[in-house]
């Protein structure tokens, strides 16, 4: 993505450079590249093992099936970069999906429903952000409360699953653009657009850079006169809006709103973001990395289905990968501190 410009040292570096700039990669990209390497290795291994793995259809479905997770990961990247965490995303996704299904059922036009979903996500993020920033509630606990609230509200909307028949919503998933082999659905496009926007905001806006600064050292960020409070609330709002979009994608994917949708999705999201190279302590990572992380997650899931192995291996593998990445991150941080 365009983000690479920021990190890769250009040969014509600063005019002030006395010695020629060495060709080297910024350390923050190392975990992302590691994730890319893992992804490629998994692709190759699967291709060698299964024979027909790297097909256009499978690659297309990898993107389309995980569209909602990509959107959630994009939002989560903001939160984790700022040094926080958002456990509410799975529940908020389920709630907005539920809300949409209900509203569509009682005949509200889809043009009203979709903005309502995004607004519901934004409000939930705002509540969490305010609790974190202004009432000193730990992000973990504040988003936990948000998760409880959203999950409970799902059941207030309806205890049963509600089928969605609206053609616009369903069309997001069922419209297949492209030929028979390579295809992309509107949901996939939305996911990619969200990732692109996230990458742009993080890399090319003052707000984005402030998020990095806060995650790097909130104390310094404040002393530098950056708008810390506003930005910290905003990352949760962004995560909430992403959960709203994910709700739309997921509803379109499953063609129903159901209260038990997305249980545990917050953990998958966090795992994908971390595997994608974002430091859990904040301040380092990329939206693009989170995309890679989601793809790694998707490949693991598909491979395990291909193997005919128990689906529980997905979670175990993700857990082990997460652990490996966290330990490596820890070692990197330790080494940096020793300098």
């Amino acid at each position: 993505m365009s983000q690479t410009n920021v990190a890769a040292p250009t040969p014509t570096a600063g005019p002030a450079t006395k010695r020629p700039p060495r060709l080297r990669i910024r350390t923050s990209w190392v975990p992302v590249l590691a994730a890319v390497a893992i992804l490629i290795i998994m692709f190759l291994a699967a291709q060698l093992y299964f024979g027909r793995f790297l097909t256009p259809r499978l690659l297309s479905s990898l993107l389309v099936d995980n569209a909602y997770l990509m959107v959630l990961a994009a939002g989560m990247t903001f939160v984790i970069l700022s040094g926080g965490i958002d456990l509410s995303v799975g529940a908020v996704m389920a709630f907005t999906g539920m809300l949409a299904a209900k509203l569509l059922l009682i005949g509200v036009p889809v043009a009203v429903v979709i903005p309502t979903m995004l607004a519901a996500g934004a409000v939930s993020g705002l509540i969490i952000g305010i609790m974190v920033q202004y009432f000193d509630v730990q992000p973990f606990i504040a988003s936990l409360a948000g998760m409880f609230l959203a999950r409970g509200l799902c059941f207030v909307v309806s205890l049963e699953a509600i089928q969605v028949k609206d053609p616009t919503v369903l069309g997001l998933q069922s419209t297949k653009l492209g030929d028979f082999e390579w295809y992309l659905t509107p949901t996939g496009i939305i996911a990619l657009v969200v990732i692109a926007i996230a990458a742009w905001v993080l890399g090319y806006t003052r707000f984005g850079r402030t998020v990095y600064a806060i995650g790097g050292n909130v104390h310094s960020a404040r002393l530098m006169g950056l708008p810390v409070a506003r930005s910290k609330v905003l990352v949760y709002v962004i995560s909430g809006i992403c959960a709203g979009i994910a709700g739309l994608l997921f509803t379109s994917y499953t063609a129903a709103g159901y209260s038990l949708n997305g249980i545990g999705t917050e953990l998958d999201t966090i795992a994908a973001v971390v595997i994608g190279g974002t430091l859990l302590t904040g301040g380092s990572g990329y939206a693009l990395g989170s995309l890679i992380g989601v793809l790694v997650y998707g490949v693991i899931k598909v491979s395990i289905t291909f193997l005919g192995a128990d689906s529980s291996w997905t979670r175990i593998t993700i857990g082990v990968l997460l652990l490996a990445f966290v330990v490596v991150q820890r070692l990197i941080v330790r080494r940096a501190n020793r300098h």
Binding site: M131, A142, F148, L149, G152, F155, L159
Partner: peptide
């Protein structure tokens, strides 16, 4: 419905956390 219990728990969590905060 027992499924709605989380809403009550969320309210309790929020109240407890807010009551512990300096600002409140």
């Amino acid at each position: 419905p027992p499924a709605v219990t989380p809403v009550f728990k969320a309210v309790v969590v929020i109240i407890v956390c807010l009551s512990q905060s300096q600002r409140m």
